[in-house]
């Protein structure tokens, strides 16, 4: 089963034993996928998602998303919109497929041979999985922040400049400075780090590292930012700073954030989607999900009966 989880999580590359250990989100075992899914269907009628899956001004819209690994079904019939300027929280027990879903949105689990992804994924109406879509460009538009802060072993400046450099966003040193300092400013790091631009990114504290990673993502100027449990390895103070930052960023970017903390979901997100065993059970305004969930499973989860 760990093998399967690894296939599910290993981004971009062919799965390798080593990568199993390293992959950032292995904590989501796929074991529960083997449990019969039919049960919910029988209990809950057709298994339609409860609530409103649409957003007013969708940046990304996903319809009929199914993901299979060999014979196992990782995601089943997911429909979801992510709107402009909104933060949507994806919650659910481990192994429910949130991470897989998130990685589908910028094709991080692209080259896994055994993965079959079907359905339509649109970014501003353009098909993410179309043959002519360039995955490089796609990932420049849909940025990603990982569970564990992963700054490159370079200077702080070079960490932020990495994306713009590979994409050729800056034509001059001054432009690059603008991008780097602007991104750090928006990540709320500039004041702290202005005098330390040549220090190594790895020398920062955990929270600063994660904000550096966010700055690094912003520097490429993405339209959507995907965050895979960005605070799970941070202390409460650092977490609070990141949450403030997410709040700030939501003015300009569409943000999808996976979180295991109900409180975090409640604090940062406008909408919340609840995943369960590869299904999207319920999507609604966050306060509705937490105060008056429309589905029994959601209620069980948010009230802490399992998860």
């Amino acid at each position: 089963m760990s093998n399967e989880a690894a296939i599910m999580e290993a981004p971009e590359l062919q799965s390798e034993p080593r990568r199993i250990e390293d992959a950032t989100a292995v904590q989501e075992p796929a074991a529960k996928r083997d449990e019969p899914m039919m049960m919910d269907e029988e209990q809950e009628g057709k298994g339609h998602t409860v609530g409103d899956i649409t957003a007013a001004d969708p940046v990304i819209s996903v319809r009929n998303c199914n993901v299979h690994y060999d014979d196992t079904c990782a995601l089943k019939n997911i429909n979801l919109d992510i709107g402009r300027g909104e933060v949507i929280a994806l919650i659910g027990p481990s192994g429910c497929g949130k991470s897989t879903f998130l990685r589908c949105l910028n094709r991080m689990n692209d080259t896994i041979d055994s993965a079959r992804i079907t359905g339509t994924f649109n970014l501003y109406g353009e098909d993410i999985y179309a043959a002519e879509t360039d995955v490089v460009l796609l990932r420049a538009r849909v940025g990603m922040v990982f569970q564990k802060p992963n700054p490159f072993p370079k200077s702080i400046y070079e960490n932020v400049a990495y994306g713009p450099r590979i994409h050729g966003l800056a034509t001059s040193r001054a432009e690059m400075d603008d991008i780097v300092y602007g991104s750090l400013e928006r990540a709320g790091l500039l004041d702290e780090l202005k005098s330390r631009m040549d220090d190594r990114g790895t020398s920062l504290s955990g929270g600063q590292q994660q904000r550096l990673c966010i700055a690094r993502t912003i520097a490429v100027n993405p339209e959507v930012i995907l965050m895979d449990e960005p605070c799970s390895s941070l202390d409460p103070i650092a977490t609070a700073k990141i949450e403030d930052l997410i709040d700030e960023l939501s003015r300009n970017y569409a943000i999808a954030i996976i979180t295991h903390s109900m409180h975090q979901a409640a604090r940062v997100s406008r909408r919340t989607a609840y995943f369960h065993l590869g299904r999207l059970i319920e999507v609604d305004a966050t306060d509705k999900i937490f105060t008056n969930p429309g589905h029994r499973l959601t209620e069980d989860y948010v009230t802490g009966r399992f998860g």
Binding site: L137, R141, H167, D178, G182, G188, R251
Partner: peptide
């Protein structure tokens, strides 16, 4: 520029950055 900052640094539009990415 996002946040409280009044935009000390020039930021590129989405379109401009897409154009530059595509060019390379």
């Amino acid at each position: 520029a996002g946040g409280k900052s009044s935009g000390t640094y020039n930021l590129m539009s989405f379109d401009e950055s897409r154009r530059r990415v595509k060019a390379g």
